[in-house]
């Protein structure tokens, strides 16, 4: 038994190094996509303290809107622009209808409001687009398709071009958000709101405007995530539940840290793949279903603020 845990997996890694590289790459891509989903959560949590339970369905809704518009004859790039517009309208509506009446309410009430929001958005999505699985318009958007093999260690590592594109776009998006937060007036206002609502209000920053902007930014992140995940598999309502894995990412990385979301996503993505491939068989397989949450639980026990979260100081 000890040999199966401490020796054989490493022997296998040495015996089939291309499989190890492939596993790390697959984990890296999955981790990047988890990080993108988590990024949507972080943006909203930073600005408003709301854990947006609807982030997963926003990913599905954005992707469905895009493919739905295209299916109805709208050219791909125009459909993309209209979808961004739809996410903007959704953000403004959420701020007006859901958040504004609940200003100052307990966090639990805001969480419940986002659960209600997720049910509403799911219902609207199913009514407008139906429940069938849709195919993402990958090549129509100019995204690469196809596969490249890297022959190495007497084996091969396979790279899907869409995976490479997902990583590149995720890096660009994070860099763009970092510049936005640090260099623009709105970005600085957003950070001020995140630090202290009352102080931000006192210097004339509009909370309503900031919330609408941050929900819109989160909607755009959801759209990008939906495109990338939809291109790897398909667009269906099953994508919504994958988004729940971002909860574990947030616990690892911290609810308010963008670098934390990225590092947390990568740790979970790579960790769950390595664990399933090299140790999963000992537990009957299917460990990916719980690995992220167990890891998050361990972090909660020893570092509840996450890797990059602000240290929790309680005065007694």
């Amino acid at each position: 038994m000890l040999s199966e845990i401490f020796v054989e997996p490493f022997v296998l890694m040495a015996d089939i190094p291309d499989l190890l590289l492939q596993t790390i790459w697959e984990g890296f891509v999955a981790g990047t996509l988890y990080a993108l989903i988590a990024l949507g959560f972080v943006l909203i949590f930073k600005a408003s303290g709301v854990f947006n339970f609807a982030q997963g369905i926003m990913v599905v809704f954005a992707a469905l809107t895009l493919v739905g518009l295209y299916a109805n004859g709208v050219p791909a790039w125009l459909a993309l622009i209209i979808t961004i517009g739809v996410m903007a309208i959704l953000a403004i509506s959420i701020e007006r209808v859901v958040l504004r009446p609940l200003v100052g309410q307990n966090e639990a009430i805001l969480l419940m409001a986002t659960i209600g929001l997720s049910l509403f958005v799911r219902g609207v999505g199913e009514t407008l687009f139906g429940g069938e699985t849709k195919t993402m318009i990958t090549s129509e958007l100019g995204l690469p398709t196809g596969i490249t093999d890297w022959n190495v260690f007497d084996g091969r590592v396979t790279f899907q071009h869409i995976d490479i594109a997902a990583v590149v776009i995720a890096v660009l998006m994070v860099a763009g958000l970092a510049v936005f937060f640090s260099k623009t007036r709105i970005g600085r206002a957003l950070r001020a709101v995140a630090d202290d609502h009352q102080a931000a209000l006192s210097v004339g920053i509009s909370l309503h405007q900031i919330w609408a902007i941050v929900w819109f930014a989160s909607g755009v992140v959801a759209l990008v995530t939906g495109i990338m995940w939809g291109a790897r598999s398909d667009v269906s309502f099953a994508l919504e539940v994958i988004a729940l894995k971002a909860l574990a990412v947030l616990i690892l990385g911290g609810f308010t840290s963008i670098p934390g979301a990225i590092v947390g996503g990568l740790i979970i993505g790579i960790g769950e793949k390595l664990f399933e491939v090299y140790w999963g068989g000992l537990l009957g397989g299917g460990t990916e279903a719980w690995f992220a949450y167990v890891l998050a639980l361990i972090f909660l026990l020893f570092r509840p603020q996450g890797l990059f979260g602000e240290r929790i100081i309680e005065r007694v």
Partner: peptide, 22 residues
């Protein structure tokens, strides 16, 4: 040899197919 796929991971089967390769 079995490769279980959890319902919430049905569009995220990277691990299962790495195991198939193994």
């Amino acid at each position: 040899v079995g490769f279980p796929v959890a319902g919430k991971d049905m569009q995220n089967q990277g691990s299962q197919w790495l195991n198939v390769r193994k």
